[in-house]
Design a protein around this nucleic acid. Sequence first.
RNA 1: GCGGACGUGGUGAAACUGGUAGACACGCCAGAUUUAGGUUCUGGUGCCGCAAGGUUUGAGAGUUCGAGUCUCUCCGUCCGCACCA
Length: 850
Amino acid sequence: MNQIPQFDPSQYEKKWREKWEEEQIYHIDNPVNAGKPKYYCLDMFPYPSGEGLHVGHWRGYVLSDVWSRYKLLQGFNVLHPMGWDNFGLPAENDAIHKGIHPKISTKKNIDNIRRQLKEIGCIYDWSKEISTTHPDYYKWTQFIFLKMFEMGLAYQKEQPVNWCNDCKVVLANEEVAGGKCERCGGTNIEKRFIKQWMLKITAYAERLLQDLDDLDWPEKVKEMQRNWIGKSIGAEVDFKIDGHENLGPVTVFTTRPDTLFGATFLVMAPEHKLVKQITEASRMSEVDAYIKETHKMSNIDRQTNKDKSGVFTGAYAINPVNGAKLPIWISNYVLMDYGSGAIMAVPAHDERDFQFAQKFGIPIIEVIHSDAAKRNADGTLSEAYVGDGDIINSDYLNGLNVEKAKETIVSRLEKDGVGKKTVNYKLRDWIFARQRYWGEPIPVVYCDKCGIVPVPEKDLPVELPDVESYKPSDDGSSPLAKMTDWVNTRCPKCGGPARRETDTMPQWAGSSWYFIRYPDRDYKEAFASPESLKKWLPVDMYVGGIEHAVLHLLYARFWTKVLYDAGLVPFKEPFQRLFNQGMVCRRAHRCHKCNRWVYDHELDLSIEPDKRVCPTCGSKLEISMEKMSKSKGNGINPDILVSQYGTDTLRLYELFTGDPAMDSEWNDDGIKACYNLLKRSWNFVHAAQPQPQSSPRAAKAVNKLIKDVESRMLAFKFNTAVSAFMEFINEASDAVNEFSQEDLEKFVIVMSPFAPHFAEEIWMTYFKKPDHVFHQPYPKCDEKLLEASEIEYTIHINGKLRMKVMAAPGCSEEALKQLLKGNPRFEELVGDKPVRKTIFVPNKLLNFIL
RNA sequence: GCGGACGUGGUGAAACUGGUAGACACGCCAGAUUUAGGUUCUGGUGCCGCAAGGUUUGAGAGUUCGAGUCUCUCCGUCCGCACCA
């Protein structure tokens, strides 16, 4: 008997990774891949933080790699690229605190993460690696910005912005989480007025909404984007202001024009332009005070304060349909940046207006009658009625239902020239400037004579100069503003003196189009070569975390549509299919007194969880489940597990722990199972004495494996695919010498996407094959071999499972009854009792109702 | 408040269109072999019961011959949005 070599992944894993890299077998331009159809599988590229990767990051990368390798076996030329999204605040904050140039710190971080990524054994084509901070890359980010400027989609606007006093930076609405700065976490946001570069994403709201329907994305993500875009259909109605006809009318937006006759007051946002002009002198001080009060309030106060407040301006608006005089109030429940900043209030049929009217004693007029409305004993409404019903008190609308009334009144308003049908979106334009150093310079100059002048394409990129201090100045301007040599330049148009824009782009810029650059990253003539656009794009499969459901994925779609409109790309959507892996969580310890996360290494984990205390202050720790991250001290470093068990084991285990789409709680108790799977597979293949032909049992096991693994991969259920390998090896271990060489080879090929080093070692070293296992075709399942001669039928009595019998597949109800006749167990159960009814499910069960 | 997801053994979890709940593992228990190369093998393992049997998918109801799966009510956890007119 042959001596079976010891299973020891450290003997071969590194060797194969080096070999693959040396041969560049995953490079899309490698001649071995010529002529194959393309498949583009994209991972969301990481922000290279100093923390390195933890096992949660691994999960997504393993997932997409198994998928990519499966596509490889299917005969595709697979592009699976990797790069770095390395502009952004964390590196800059590091620079401010430690004085290290972000270029240097991010390079260090990238080197470490690249090393970690290589250990996963992914088929990344490293010859396509890109970095958003490389001038050859951001040259084209700047180019796209200028395209948008040319198309009128990039513009400047003075407007209230979210100012974070700590970061000294203006934040996009999208970066304000719960009224707090998403970057630094704690600081409250205040409003400031700054001239900002904006991108007109709202011009694409409708297309961003409509085109979602055709994408093969998780419904959840599509729904989140729909909510974010927030389309609502309604009408704009113009109200004249009594005694202020010179100011023109105030326009309100409403989704309920059918209730116009029920309006009893108007409310304007405190920031509304007309407020100061219409307020009566005697009320000016009160109104002023209220406006000041609102400005002081942070967003979070404004949101959580459910108690309605407001002030009467003393002015009245005229209802265009019936001439009624409606008092105009201001209140902070009306937002300036949605609709027109003013509403008509119909307390009978809107909850918020109802609360407001009740508090300030404003009349409530019902215009929709329904028995479903909730009423007080005296017949008045006890809460706003928002449902359908018959229109009343509304002149020519009376008797119509809500929908009909909407149509009727809108056409009447349009005819009379006092209103029109309108669509509104919650989506707001994107603030596209940061007063920061570590970002792409916005490529425009200001000339006293010519105004805003874009930097000509031939002068791109506008390179980021080195600065002495990374700290923004207290007025909030970028550190670049202090670099006078850089700032002062010549106007490209007239040649006169001019100043450069010192704001930089937000971190989202580079990631909004990186997938376009990958296939031909060295192309000099344009942001992408026409051949690569045609051949490689759009992306076929995009894999990444759910946290990017709205921002990044919406921005990337927006940029793609802009490029399409500019005639620069031939596709309208960047990512045909999207898969979001669930978050990997782990319990984390928090000390409320010290207000910090306590790291695992500070604790004695053998102590009962509820007895653990803070090492600094001794108070009891709160334990909660948190997304794995080093800052919470609950990360698990994959490097340690890899050195202990090998890459393939960790790859398998990352998949085995649960449904990849679901969140999971990390625990490495079961990692041995995956190590054992590989070890048993190793021993099985080495011990097997190949036969000229597989036994029926062995052939069935192999074919079942081929089918199960493939169908589970297609459903993205990698966890049960790993189970299928375990089932196979359980079966195969009992039939070691019943397999043909061909079937053993099929097993190794099917295994190769999951455990590539293992498969390659067996394939090349043990089987002594001349070509890599990844160049083999995915084996076909022979369905005939899976057919069983007998299957189990369950016999139910009154719906309860009572016994089981074996019979041929496709057995008829009658045949099965014949088979049961005379069976002692069956006689005991049924006997002479009359059978009222039977239910037969082919190949499954027979149910007797007695 | 609105929208979405989820709730199954000691643990991680399976279960396709309603049809044997707990696959596959971890852990644990018993035994065998071996005895230091992350041993291997056999059997057991939801709960109650010696057993026959009963019972079991957050709680309760309903539809059905049959419900983890469908419907309703409630409880709980997580995520997203949040005065959007």
